[in-house]
Structures are given as C-alpha cells and as structure tokens.
Design a protein around this nucleic acid. Sequence first.
DNA 1: ATAGGGTTAG
Length: 589
Amino acid sequence: MLLISLLQSCKTIKHLQEIQTQIIVNGLEHNDYVAPRIITAYARLKKMVYARKVFDRIPEPNTTSWNAMIKAYAQCEFHREVVVLFHRMKKLDVSPNCFTFPIVLRSCVKIGTLREGKEVHCFVIKSGFGANAFVGTSLIELYSSGRVIKAAYKVFGEMVERNVVAWTAMINGYISCGDIASARCLFELAPERDVVLWNTMVVGYIELGNMVEARKLFDQMPKKDVMSWNTVLVGYANNGDVKECERLFEEMPERNVFSWNGLIGGYAHNGSFFKVLDALKRMLIEGRVFPNDVTLVIVLSVCARLGAFALGKWVHVYAETNGYKENIYVGNALIDMYAKCGIIENALDVFKSMDKKDLITWNTIIGGLATHGQGDDALSLFSQMKNAKEIPDEITFIGVLCACTHMGFVENGLSYFQSMVDDYSIVPRIEHYGCMVDLLARAGHLAEAIKFIKEMPIEADAVIWANLLAACRMYKNVELAELALQRLMALEPKNPANFVMLSNIYGDLGRWKDVARAKVAMRDTGFKKLPGCSVIEVNDTVVEFYSLYDKHPQSEEIYATLKGLTKLLRSSGYAPDFEVLNKISGMSF
DNA sequence: ATAGGGTTAG
C-alpha cells in the first residue's frame, strides 16, 4: 500500500525506478493491483517505452492493466497505439469494460477514423455496454465529430440514463454541425444545466458571430465561472468589439491568465499595438497573474510589428528565466521579432539554440534572412531544412523565392518554383506568382515579367501590377508602366495610392499638367491616401514617423541627421538616386 | 468523463 502511494506521488524517473525495484523484490511486479499503477506512473512522466516494458512482462494482464496501458497511450497522444492495442485485446479475448470504450472511442475521434469508431460501437453493443452513460457520451462525440449527427442523436435517444455531460455532448454535436437551432432546442429541454452546458451554448453563438444572443445567454446564467467571462471576452475580441471586451475585463470578478491573454490578444488582433504594451505593463504591476508562454508570443508579435527591440529583448530574458526556454512557439516568435527588428544575428542565435524546430521555425528564419538581404544564407538554410527532413510548404517557398528576388538569382528562382510544383506538389498561389513577377521585374526582365503574367493560370491582382509598376518606374520603362497602371486602375479604381503612383510617374517625366490632373482625379474619388508611417523604438518608447510630414517635434534634427548620413554614404561610394525624393519633398538630399 | 488562449507570408 505504501508502495502504491509512492508510485502516485513520485516525480522523477530515478525515484520511480527505485520503487519499481522494491516492487520486484517483493514479487509484486505482476500483481493485478500494482502493475497498472506502475504503468500509469511511467506514463505520467511520459516514459512510454518503460511503461510498455512493464506491461509486456505481465504474463496475463487483466482488463485493468490493459486499460492502464491504453490510457497511457491516449494521454501521450499516441492514438494509433490505442487502437492497435484495443485490437490485440479483442484478439486475445480479454473483455473490455466500461472504462475501455470511452478511451478508445476518444482516440478514434482524435485520429478522425469514423470507420474504426463504428466497429467499436458494434463491439460495445455486443458486450452489453450500450446503456452506459460514459460509453454513450463518447459515442455521441464520435458521431458528432464525424458529422453524422443523426447517428449521434440515435445513441442519445437510446441512452437509459442521460446525465448533464451526455446532454452537453449532444448539444455540442449540433453546434459543431452548424445546427444552432436544434442545439438551443435541446438546451431548453435539458433537465439540468450546469455551468459547462451554459458555456457550451454561449460558445455556439460566439462561433457564429452572434454576440447579441451570446451576451443574452451570458446575462441569464445563474452562475458564471471565470471560463464564462473569458469566453465572452474573447468572443468580443475576435468579433472586433474591443470596447466591450475591455468593459467585460474591468467588470469580471476574478481574472486568470486566460483573461489577460484574451484582452491582450484582442488588442493585438485589432491592431491596437500600443494598448498591448500598456496591458502588459499593467499585468506586471498588478503582479497577481503572470505572463505565460501565450502572453509572451502575443507581445513578441507586437514587438515585431512595432520594431520594439528593447521590449522584445526583455521578453527574451523573461522567457529564459521563467521556464519558457524550450517552448517552440516562444522560440519561433523570438526569431520573428529579432528578424523584423533587423537584428538578424540574434534571430539566428535563437534559431540555433532551439533543440526542437518545426516547420514554422524554418519558415520564419528563412523568410527573415530573405527579407534581410541575406538571401544566400536563406537558401543554404533551406537545403539544411530538407536535410533535416522537414517538408517545406507554400510559405517556405515564399521565403525561398523572396531570397532569390533579393539576390537577383533569376535562374535559381525559376528552378525553385519548378521544384515546388514537381517535388512537393504545391499548387502555386497568387502570392507565389507575385514572387515570380517580382523576381523577373526587379532584375530588370520587364518583358519576361509581363509574359509570365499573361501565361499565369490565375489573373494577376492589384498587388502584382503595383509591384510591376514600381519596377517599371525603377527601370524607367514608361510603356510597360502605362500598361501596368491601366490594369491597376481597372482593379482598384479608387485606391488613392494608385493615383499617387500615377502622378509620381508623370512627375518623373516632367509632365506636370498630368500630375495635376491625377491629383484632381484622386480628390474626386473622395478617398485620401494615408501618409506612409513607420515606427521605431527610441529610448524604450515606440515613436511614430510619418512620411514627408513634420509631425515630430524634432523633425528638423531628424532630417539634418538623415542628410548627414547620406553624405557619409556618398563618401563611401554609394550613389543613391534622390532625384524623385528631392522633387516631391522640396528638400535636397 | 465535460471547455479556453499563441508563432511564419508577395
């Protein structure tokens, strides 16, 4: 008995092995009570090989031991093993019990095998467990996940005792099949409604974007837990209602890390980046709830967008000192943050320090290097990626093609594109065609770029024409610029940026009357182009800069510095073309 | 046995 309680509480592999030795010495290793508990203890420490060894050494395991082994696999997400073991159990004529079926059915749901699940259902009926509430609930979940809601309802209707969990499963089934009306009907009929059932129903409305009905139900709830509050809070955030999300956050009686992440995520999702930073500060000052991996990832993504390097660095240190060093999401977000802040060396350091890498890790570093102008490094990492047996996806190739564009590797770009289609069966999307047009156009192969657009299986969109137009301007090809512009204006007749581009091209040619005409035309559309804006972190604060606009109190100093820098560049041999910039800014660089 | 959050892109 002492050994069993030790098994339940032990925290290290070493300790567990010592206990196991004691058990073996006492001859209890194959004991029907002890064996399943050793298996469970190994599973809790994620040591499935050891768990399996214990199981395999039992001469004739009873149902409890089988269940322990099956459950162990399920907990470690080895769902295929669960099914395999269940089959073996059947073959050896060991009878499953009411604990076996729910685990196996759940694994069938996780693998997404309805066929297998149906076989289990037959076996359930044969072995006389059809009336069991637990088994019934799992069957409802099986059929709901397989979108055969009728079969789920049949199981539900035939259940002898239906508890609130079964009702919840059935209602959730209707919701996941998009039938909110039937879900609501059953909800009204349910003999008992606990907070989980209420929350489930509220989620149903939120997922349909019906915040009004969700809120109605929420207000009617006899009892709300943190989960109820968080659910509605996140619902508002995802439906773009930041105000209501904030109100709920202030009103809620108790907040956990999910509440904070809901608020912070809501800000990030809706582009209120500075509010993200404020909320993080408030969270840290209040000090009741601490940022976790999810908080860090959201904040890092905002640092990436704002170029807030100092804060990003702080998050990095926080992650390392709070046990999120190995977290792959955090690692990926750090790589992206450093890359977007322009500190590519740090991005590479994080990348190299990660023991576990996933597809996003590779995509982020490859894309980061590519946009940073280190296309050759991006490409060499791409080949390392393939060596590491990570299968590239469509996003990987955007990075790869972008790398080729920035290096001017036209031939390579074309062959990567071909490899994407031939070797990885990726159907190129508009973004990939966009990369290819860019690749050709930026290298000055404008005619080929046009030819490529004409031969593409999909119509070029505004982004493609706009990029081509920029290239035409760069290479001073007026003819093609006019074509691109014509197509662009057809696709986006009201986009003020296009009029600006148009007037700039006329300006390049000295056609000032046309410049004026383009400006009038833009005014007539009623849309105004927002000034280009960029942000930079200065002394721990993020400052906004607007293009050609002296909003900043120190803009004189800033422009003076810029001129100084240009001079420095010139003296070291760089000869930029400032003709256009000087013309529109009225300054001389 | 019931339910929740996050990262890459022309």
